[in-house]
Design a protein around this nucleic acid. Structure first.
Length: 498
RNA sequence: GCCCUCAUCGUCUAGUGGCCUAGGACGCUGCCCUUUCAAGGCAGAGAUCAGGGGUUCGAAUCCCCUUGAGGGCGCCA
């Protein structure tokens, strides 16, 4: 690309959990850095004093680490700083006067000015402009204050903001790495606030100062920042600084085509974790939202995304988030991990479900692994395994009714119970053999026997492979449950004949 | 209201003037495998490339208009 070192950043504002859109931006920055052997930086933009919280910072750290998006430089989870361009938290940068210094410099050079308009006044003029169908932008009232006016305002106690003096004519454009040529008429741009009355910088100001000072080479961010870019470019020009490259990623929409939000369900990385998605799934799926390679590859092995990612494969149009495909992908990843790993991932969900793991008669790892190819979500696991941890299974009324009403069930189940009781060795293999022998000897088709046994033992019509399930359940439990079902049949028949 | 952006199967997308009778993936349908459910294998339906004009021997690909969707117009980021 160029001989300058590749340095990119993810710069979230800590006003909540890491959103899916933010995670995607972080991921693309991370992949870009890895691909070009660059540096991935994490900067915290906490200049919204009202909404920024420490908890949000921690949550963002957690989510990023969960996704495996390790950063080389920036604010660290233990609140330390890593790298030579710190501090990496904007409130800390403000504290040492970085932003004020550049704001004063711009005033001195005539690129900025103090503005004493109150929020109420601004609000009013905005409303008026809208009503008169004019552009609702700041008109630059304080650009030329009458002599002595500023002092008067100061005496009244008004706290000024510092605004950037936007050029009145000409155009501001750039060559976006994703959108190509982009151009704005400067007449539409406005004198944005650089420093708030409280002294904190605004986003557009802090972003430029920090990106420059941190020697960011590529700014990769969401589409929603396209209209901020011309503002920032004019700032770069006034400061006489070289601009980074810009790449604007398309948005992520909910299933109804509107911007992904709370009403679409889960929107934060944390929620997806809780729902039972594997981090690799989320990472892989997010990569495919707005990026693809010419082979239309779907599943990427470890390290493969880092190798194959590029900005050329990025989509200009917004992408709709598809939970169905996400679930499919999670199943793919679950099928790929080892028995040990799967158990590790499943454990919190089993505990969350309140299952007494010591109550099982088999190794819990075996139980979890038995149906591994069916799981779509880790949170599916407790429900499927419940029968192994409880005295009685949850009986599915429909399955029970189907089995109970078959005339032969009584005979079949008592025969099977007797056979199981007498088995010298209670293993999957011997159980299967005994069951098949019983069916054959009594002239039943396999399914005629297997199905009622399954329901009697598990309470359900569907489940794990039958004989392994019975082995894991143990002889006592299996026989006990079959007997219990026989009781239910007799009760039902007794009531019927009355 | 003004500005900006975007537009290929339901969804994610391939495609950069002839290889496109538009390819892949998810989902859907059917068949096979099978003790159930899955998984797997095979087959299939599904897009007049938003609509309308051009340019060209030839357009999903280039140009214009229309429409629709999204973003922005904050002392939020």
């Amino acid at each position: 690309m160029e001989n300058k070192k590749t340095r990119v950043r993810f710069a979230p504002s800590p006003t909540g959990h890491l959103h899916i859109g933010g995670a995607r931006t972080a991921l693309f920055n991370y992949l870009f850095a890895r691909k070009y052997d660059g540096t991935f930086i994490l900067r915290i933009e906490d200049t919204d004093e009202l909404r920024s919280t420490k908890e949000s910072v921690e949550s963002i750290f957690d989510s990023m680490r969960w996704l495996g998006l390790v950063w080389d430089e920036g604010a660290m989870p233990d609140m330390s700083e890593k790298g030579e361009f710190g501090p990496y938290v904007q409130s800390r940068r403000e504290a040492v006067g970085i932003y004020r210094e550049y704001a004063e410099k711009l005033i001195k050079e005539g690129f900025a000015y103090r503005c004493y308009c109150t929020p109420e006044e601004l609000d009013e003029s905005r409303k008026k402009a809208l009503a008169e169908k004019r552009l609702p932008k700041y008109e630059g009232l304080c650009r030329h204050l009458a002599p002595g006016q500023a002092e008067k305002y100061e005496k009244e106690g008004r706290k000024p903001v510092i605004r950037f003096k936007m050029p009145d004519d000409g155009f501001t454009g750039w060559n976006d790495l994703i959108h190509k040529e982009l151009k704005f008429d400067n007449k539409l741009l406005y004198d944005f606030v650089m420093l708030k009355a409280g002294g904190y910088p605004t986003y557009n100001f802090a972003c430029v100062i920090d990106d420059h000072l941190m020697q960011i080479s590529h700014v990769i961010r969401g589409d929603d920042h396209i209209s901020n870019t011309p503002l920032q470019i004019n700032l770069y020009k006034a400061l006489g600084w070289e601009m980074p490259e810009f790449a604007h990623l398309s948005m992520i929409l909910g299933p109804d085509g509107t911007r992904l939000s709370k009403r679409h369900g889960a929107t934060s990385v944390q929620e997806y974790k809780k729902l039972g998605y594997l981090p690799d799934t989320v990472k892989n799926y997010l990569a495919l939202l707005g990026w693809s390679n010419p082979e239309s590859q779907q599943i990427f092995a470890e390290g493969e995304l880092e190798e194959k990612f590029n900005l050329d494969g990025c989509q200009k149009s917004p992408a709709t988030f598809d939970n169905v495909k996400l679930q499919w992908m999670n199943g793919e990843y679950i099928r790929k991990i080892s028995r040990e790993k799967l158990y590790e991932f499943a454990l919190p969900y089993l505990q969350e479900a309140g299952l007494d793991l010591s109550a099982a008669k088999a190794d819990v790892k075996d139980l979890v692994y038995m149906e591994f190819e069916k799981y779509k979500l880790l949170s599916d696991i407790p429900g499927r395994l419940e029968m192994f941890f409880k005295e009685e299974p949850a009986y599915d009324p429909k399955a029970m009714e189907d089995v109970l009403k078959k005339p032969e069930t009584d005979k079949i189940l008592s025969g099977i119970a007797a056979a199981y009781r007498e088995l010298p060795d209670f293993s999957e293999k011997s159980i299967e053999e005994a069951t098949r022998v019983f069916a054959k000897a009594n002239g039943y088709k396999n399914g005629q026997v297997f199905h009622p046994v399954r329901v009697a033992v598990s309470g359900r019509a569907q489940g794990p492979t039958l004989f392994k399930m019975i082995e894991y359940l143990s002889r006592e439990t299996a026989v006990k449950r079959i007997n219990k079902t026989l009781d239910m049949i007799r009760t039902a028949n007794g009531e019927k004949s009355k």
